[in-house]
């Protein structure tokens, strides 16, 4: 049995603002019967169309989905559209005290419906959440954009967390490797590292030393976390030849993602003209 806070139980047993506003100013719809949860949010605005005066929801889903929807409507009632646009899934979870980790996707669903409703108001889009970008998880129809977003907004570091927040990876599991790489990429890009200023001209020895250090500091840790490893094989002019080991070497995405990631790091910290190549067996 889930460990729900009193607040979650209260919002499940006594949900606020259930229903559908007739002739609503805008609406947002997300999820489906097949997915196991869905939410339809309708909003009424003031005369100037700036402030939310009423919000109602209809939800199909588990207790935490219903509680999250109820919390969402309570949070945004009385808010201006501009402030509502800044509400995050974490705000919904915080309002409820806490959601079990595995149920965080319920709060994300709330945020998505709200966003769709705001887009419906501002751009005249239908309000039905559409998939944006490439679908990574076909089981649950989750795109790369959405995965990157939950990673950034909630500082996620593990595949399991991504599954908890947006369901991706929770079905056949076929997309978990891909999620792992998105994690790696997103977090590597986000990590604020103190950059040693790039030197001017380098001697060959200096260059090799710097490449080696950058690999050790910026690149290897993420690969090792993924069950792989990297070795510097040779440097010829601006060509950096590396060997990928372990999980990385058999990774189907390695030619693109890995190389791009390593090259970007080396260019950032060593020299702009470096080209990374994988050692040929």
């Amino acid at each position: 049995m889930w460990d729900y806070t009193e607040k979650v139980k209260d919002h499940f047993l006594n949900p606020r603002n259930v229903g559908e506003i007739e002739n609503a100013d805008c609406m947002g719809e997300v999820g489906s019967l097949a997915c196991g949860d869905a939410l339809k949010l309708t909003l009424r605005l003031d005369e100037k169309k700036e402030k939310i005066v009423d919000a109602k929801f209809l939800t199909f889903g588990c207790a935490s989905a219903i509680a999250s929807s109820s919390a969402l409507t309570e949070i945004i009632k009385g808010m201006t559209i501009d402030s509502a646009a800044k509400v995050t899934n974490q705000d919904i979870a915080d309002y409820l005290g806490e959601l079990p980790e595995q149920k965080m996707h319920c709060s994300v669903m709330g945020r998505e419906a709200l966003e769709a409703a705001i887009a419906n108001l501002r751009t005249g889009k239908t309000g039905v959440v559409e998939l944006e970008g490439r679908v990574v998880c076909t089981c649950f129809g989750v795109t790369e954009t959405e995965i990157e977003r939950v990673i950034k907004e909630n500082s996620l570091t593990e595949v399991e967390q991504v599954t908890n927040y947006c369901k991706a990876g929770g079905g056949c599991g076929g997309c978990r490797g891909e999620i792992e790489r998105i994690l790696l990429r997103t977090n590597a890009a986000a990590k604020p590292t103190v950059k040693p200023s790039k030197p001017g001209r380098l001697t060959v020895m200096q260059k090799i030393k710097m490449i080696d250090e950058t690999i050790a500091r910026e690149i290897r840790p993420s690969l090792v976390q993924d069950g792989g490893d990297i070795e510097l094989v040779d440097v010829e002019g601006s060509r950096v030849i590396v060997a990928l080991r372990g999980a990385c070497s058999s990774c189907p995405a390695s030619p693109v993602t890995m190389k791009d990631f390593i090259q970007a790091k080396l260019r950032e910290f060593v020299a702009d003209d470096l080209v990374v190549e994988e050692e040929k067996q």
């Binding site: 209809l58 939800t59 219903i66």
Partner: peptide, 8 residues
């Protein structure tokens, strides 16, 4: 069902 978008 009265709370569900599909139930009504």
């Amino acid at each position: 069902r009265s709370m569900s978008p599909f139930g009504r």
